[in-house]
Design a protein around this nucleic acid. Sequence first.
DNA 1: TAATTAATGTAGGGGTCACTACATAAAAGC
DNA 2: GCTTTTATGTAGTGACCCCTACATTAATTA
Lengths: 196, 196
Amino acid sequence: MITNRSSTRGRPRRFDPDTAVAVAERLFHARGYDAVSVSDLTDALGINPPSFYAAFGSKAGLYARVLDHWGGTGAIPLDQILREDVPVADALAALLEEAARRYAADPEAAGCLVIEGTRCNDADAREAACALNRAAEDRIHDYIAARYPASAASVADYVSTTMSGLSAKARNGHDLPRLLATARLAGGTLAQALAG
Amino acid sequence: MITNRSSTRGRPRRFDPDTAVAVAERLFHARGYDAVSVSDLTDALGINPPSFYAAFGSKAGLYARVLDHWGGTGAIPLDQILREDVPVADALAALLEEAARRYAADPEAAGCLVIEGTRCNDADAREAACALNRAAEDRIHDYIAARYPASAASVADYVSTTMSGLSAKARNGHDLPRLLATARLAGGTLAQALAG
DNA sequence: TAATTAATGTAGGGGTCACTACATAAAAGC
DNA sequence: GCTTTTATGTAGTGACCCCTACATTAATTA
């Protein structure tokens, strides 16, 4: 029993909010939060500002919806990569390679939506992105800590810093081969980093 | 015989452009290009917009002056670090450590002015920062290539990607110990990366 | 059919952005 | 002293930003 649009009274929507979130995700990913205006969004959605604000409350509100949606679409599936049945170093190396692949997959929307969002100039949007990013970093940290408690903090920092670098360089135009080579060099030091 | 203000005709300036560049450098470094308005700059300098535009032409014009000035102030002295008389891996590791130190030196102006500038939303300012960043990356590449031509491209990418990550994380609040630990983990893999 | 509910389209508000027209002030050259 | 040159202060400009007031339209409910 999913809430079926919370009673169907009133004039029906002329657009699908879920589709709108997907369109917005694309725009935010391609250009970054600050460089996408509400006009850009309403134009892309074919709606007028009042419809936009009735549905999403604010630009940052829509961005929060996009971040929620992200877990099911563009986000790296940490569940599948940070496996208990493989060496930690191998899993983290696979994580970096997967990041490289995803960040370079679409040259028009390079890098990580969330990592880039943590650096925008709107306080609300930035905090939402930071919260999501912290959650991901915590999962990486806890995954390492289960088997390497002493080096978890430093290795988790190393991995997340490398991912930030990969995202930045993807946006600076580095293509898949370059990002992948970088990710592999970074991954190659994990075994000794964990041991140290 | 330095050009002494190109003839002293006319009403004298009430501010020193070089001081203004230093003040602007501080503001751009602290908040990023996009988040600093011309009003912020004129307020900080105690001047009015016409004086600002007469002296610098535009906001991006002042930013270009800041980038020129940067080489003599905040920039990492590649000359002194990329030495011919030390192993390449050691020099690059020292470069990463020095980056960590500088990016965390001032929490109010974290990260690298130039790297952060390559990601701003103004086309002129971004291109100026990218040009300067490319020059630095080329120097790193050429330094490596002199002794390790086969791995120069990938190792240079790895080093610059790590620096981008360090700058990003510095701006996300990572302090000196964390950045330094990350830089050292990254530096530890350089010897084998060069050999590979 | 009438009342209620909700989303729409038109039009615009208040603010900030980078930037400038213009008259004035302060120096040097004649 | 008068002209020329340059920087200044006052006071804006148009463009764009995020967001909204308000009347209207289109659906359900009574």
